[in-house]
Design a protein around this nucleic acid. Structure first.
Lengths: 129, 129
DNA sequence: ATTGCTGCAAAAAATTTGCACGAAA
DNA sequence: TTTCGTGCAAATTTTTTGCAGCAAT
């Protein structure tokens, strides 16, 4: 018998390219809404559902990474950066990467708790505000 | 003329008491849904809208504090704890307070960025999992 | 010619709000 | 009795899903 389930091949569409480029060129994590606005400049009638569907595929591929900040909707940035954290400006709300990391976090938790990972967000004024 | 706008007085209702007690007795930050379930044990037909409305009032009074973790719905805990952080268990998803804090975070941000505050979440196994 | 991809609208999930009635003061 | 608080349902907001037609292969 032939179990040749053709491995699903991705097609290259204008919307997919525009969405990828928006995220690539932003240089900072973008909200789905921001991706729509930026990619929409190049693809009239681009729908938010298409943005979400493509973002999901790109996350699964490992091309982009979801950036979750406390109380914020998810943002998305290019993967490939190594372990890092984020800074959110209290004035413009934009989020920037921080490429350093405090080290001694494993011993902050009480006895019996095992720390496996961590997540740090800094807040303040970005260099433009 | 008399500008005596009577300062709005809060009434004490069964639902308000039950909601306050649920949060007081939990000992850890609770989701709105968890507050509903716990307080609902003492107040049949308690509605989720009442939970949200009372939570909002209690936050404005300063009685409780909103706890926001990345990618999670808001939780609520008693105020009065001083600056602290949180630990979320990767197994049971529950959130616990961490009463220690790394110090040297002010200099992690790039030049031109001023750090005013921070938010840290640790992940791992809680002592029961 | 297939069949994945898209736009649009409807569905979900979490939270907020409008309204009429019940209850605290 | 006055008016705040509650329950219920409808509205919002963000994200997901169903579906018919378009387009990439």
């Amino acid at each position: 018998m032939n179990n040749n389930h053709a491995p699903k091949v991705e097609r290259s569409t204008r919307q997919r390219a525009a969405i990828r480029e928006a995220i690539e060129q932003a240089g900072r994590p973008l909200l789905a809404q921001e991706v729509l606005e930026l990619a929409g400049l190049h693809v009239p009638r681009l729908g938010i559902a298409t943005v979400y569907r493509n973002i999901k595929v790109m996350v699964e591929e490992g091309a982009i990474k979801q950036v979750l900040l406390p109380g914020e909707n998810p943002r998305f940035e290019l993967a490939g950066h190594d372990h890092h954290h984020h800074f959110q400006c209290n004035a413009c709300q934009k989020v920037f990467d921080i490429h350093s990391c405090p080290s001694d976090l494993g011993n902050l938790a009480p006895k019996g708790f095992k720390v496996e990972s961590h997540d740090l967000t800094l807040y303040g004024r970005c260099k433009d505000c």
